[in-house]
């Protein structure tokens, strides 16, 4: 049995600035992993590098269900089963959410399944109200998150990367989104959830919690780690592993090179 997502020595930089500095991660099918970490530590960069955004020079390996992603374009990665809910979803003026998903259904051989999921998920996730509005345009912060989770429910990925899907949501919405994550998670799916908050974890049972600092995973543990971090904060970890300071020690994390 292959793993859902296997990341090895992933590095990414923009210009001469290295953001991901040799990241390793393994998410099994059926598992939910959480990534926490201070602002600017590279969590969203990880999301984009997995999705194939071309702004970054990336090296290393990321394998989804046995398929190497690195070197593939964004669409191929999507076809291989990667989907991301973005922290800052892009507005697409003049294109409604329905048109976008309908276009996808048209392109895909499983278009009928996609259409069925649009109908089902729109109701379940209360997305009908912005289905006929331009993608992300004029949506509130919370509505954008709802739109992202709805789209992921329609895409039905093998690996879902959820970047701060819980930020800016009201209490009820957090629960609904958490439920949507549970619905999405299944024996064939691995979920990577990036968050700053424990509150969504009240509704979810993560298998692992990872702490990302300065472009690498510096600590991993069970669900209790998230609670500890809530109390302790990242100060000690940042002091130990470096945050903003470029000359920060990188410990053993590059040892495998």
């Amino acid at each position: 049995m292959t793993t859902a997502l296997e990341v090895r020595d992933l590095r990414a930089s923009i210009g001469s600035v290295e953001i991901l500095k040799g990241l390793d991660l393994e998410v099994g099918f059926g598992e939910l992993h959480v990534i926490m970490g201070p602002n600017g530590s590279g969590k969203s960069t990880l999301c984009h590098v997995l999705m194939g955004k071309t702004d970054y020079q990336a090296t290393g390996s990321a394998v989804v269900a046995g398929h190497e992603l690195m070197g593939e374009d964004v669409e191929t990665r999507a076809r291989l089963g990667v989907a991301a809910a973005f922290q800052y979803p892009t507005e697409i003026p003049g294109v409604t959410l329905r048109e976008l998903l309908e276009e996808l259904a048209e392109q895909r051989s499983d278009g009928a399944d996609i259409r069925a999921r649009i109908d089902e998920a729109a109701v379940r996730l209360d997305a009908t109200r912005f289905l006929d509005r331009p993608v992300n345009e004029g949506l509130s912060g919370g509505e954008k998150k709802r739109s992202e989770i709805f789209q992921l429910a329609v895409l039905a990925p093998r690996v879902a990367v959820l970047d701060e899907i819980d930020s800016g949501l009201d209490v009820d919405a957090v629960r609904e989104v958490a439920e949507a994550v549970e619905v999405m998670r299944g024996p064939d799916v691995g979920v990577l959830l990036i968050t700053h908050y424990n509150r969504i974890l009240k509704y979810l049972k993560p298998d692992r919690v990872h702490v990302m600092v300065a472009g690498t995973i510096v600590q991993s543990g069970g669900p209790e780690l998230a609670e500890e971090l809530e109390d302790s904060g990242y100060a000690d970890l940042v002091a130990q592993f470096g945050g903003v300071a470029p000359e920060a020690p990188e410990g053993d994390f590059l040892a495998g090179l």
Binding site: M51, D73, V74, A78, P93, G94, V95, E103
Partner: peptide, 27 residues
């Protein structure tokens, strides 16, 4: 960024760009 977003939803570049052009004029 629009192209990236549309492709991340599974559209190939050709159709992503087509949709972006369509949206551009739709306004």
């Amino acid at each position: 960024d629009q192209r990236y977003y549309l492709m991340s939803r599974g559209l190939d570049r050709i159709h992503a760009d087509r949709l972006q052009v369509r949206g551009f004029f739709e306004e």
